[in-house]
């Protein structure tokens, strides 16, 4: 176990500088700013959130995307079940 730990530590020490070298060298990343002059309502709030904090923007995005997907997925499920399609069984699939 001790040997394994030593191996893992040395691997980390060797790997870290090489990975930082490979990631570097590209200069400063381009910063995009949303133009809020032509927006209003939700769109304005959205663009402002983007400009103020990419972290909050990411959190809100990661919540909204699955929720919207599930809402419209469930609506489609409801429509297909209403038509009469059996959504509980796969049927014969073959290999």
């Amino acid at each position: 176990m001790k040997r394994l730990m030593h191996f893992a530590m040395s691997l980390l020490i060797i790997a870290l500088p090489s990975s930082s070298f490979s990631a570097g060298g590209g200069g400063e990343p381009i910063v995009i700013v949303a133009d809020t002059r032509w927006t209003s309502g939700i769109s304005h709030w959205w663009a402002t959130l983007y400009n103020e904090s990419h972290l909050y923007f990411t959190i809100v995005t990661c919540i909204i995307i699955p929720v919207v997907g599930v809402i419209f997925g469930v609506i489609t499920d409801f429509i297909m079940a209403h038509i009469g399609i059996d959504l509980t069984k796969r049927g014969h699939g073959g290999h």
Partner: peptide
């Protein structure tokens, strides 16, 4: 990938939501 790209500021959520309306229905089909 969505979290990574959004954090880098390269996601247009309005477009993603509009596309998702069609895509989530299409995915069920």
């Amino acid at each position: 990938g969505a979290a990574s790209y959004t954090y880098k500021g390269r996601t247009e959520l309005v477009a993603a939501i509009i596309m998702l309306i069609g895509a989530s229905m299409g995915a069920q089909v």
